[in-house]
Amino acid sequence: MSRDLASVPAGAGPAGPSAVALTPARLIAIAIAGLALVAVPYMLPNYYVSIATQVLIFAVLAMSIDILAGYTGRTPLGHGAIFGTATYVTIYWSTTLGGSPWTGMLVGVAAATTVAAIFALLAIRTSGVYFLLLTLALGMIVWGVCLRWTSVTGGENGIRGSVRPLFIATHSAFYYLVLTAVAVITFVMWRFVNSPFGLTLRGIKDSESRMRSLGYNVPLHLFIAFTVSGFFAGIAGAIYAMFNSFVSPSTVALTQSVAGLLMAITGGIGTLFGSFVGAAAIISLENFVSSYTERWLSILGLMFVLIMVFAPEGIVGRIRMILARSKG
């Protein structure tokens, strides 16, 4: 499976500086997307505003997975655990310990980044299916700890407690705060994947042996990429703590890692922004379809199969290909 996932073609973005340049067409696309996102609370009832908030949070998780899967060619299945670690720590800090939720988020992100660094040390020397399985196993350990360490995590019951300060208690206020944070995070991640360091990751994906002979310490670069990726997954998890006000072992479970990966793949591996489309598609499906049928997981599976068969480059990857073809 991982071979297939690892070899999912990256978005057919044009090479060279044009991949980074903000062309008028791109600026217009960003402006329209931005306006649409700002308009959400005016156009839609609270239920949908809450879903839109969830989409934004999970898009950050999916982008963090895309850093590894799309740019280094290593597909992780443990990011749900890193994400959930931040959620646990944030809620534990602000409810059980009674600390400030903002400090709780900082500590949560730090904890998630630490967990990611430990995962990275163990996993970066592997690739393909071994990387996939090792990250899966490491994620399962975190899940096991959350389930068994009842005195701290509350075991299966989890921890409940409102983390959100009063000024963002309403759906729309919280949505705008998350939107602002996600816009900043997305910009930083975009700069990261297009930086000189980001290029080294794409080089590693293409030829590790050549990278070594050019003087690159490949494991060090993968370690940094994994840790940075975990840092962003942690931010998503900390925001999720404010969104959900509840955490249980299902937050760090394998299904969370799989959901994040599916979002990244559905949107388009290696496209970064595809994660928003993937998160919107999967979370909408989960919410809307499950109100009509209990078989939404089957429909999710079917959708995934259709995407892998007809557009393995994902939705955004496919759109870029069509645009590139119509230009050329």
Binding site: A15, G16, P17, P196, R202, K205, M211, L214
Partner: peptide
């Protein structure tokens, strides 16, 4: 690096 441009190969 076959999936990168000549420019990006030179940058690396």
């Amino acid at each position: 690096f076959p999936n990168l441009s000549v420019r990006d190969n030179m940058r690396l």
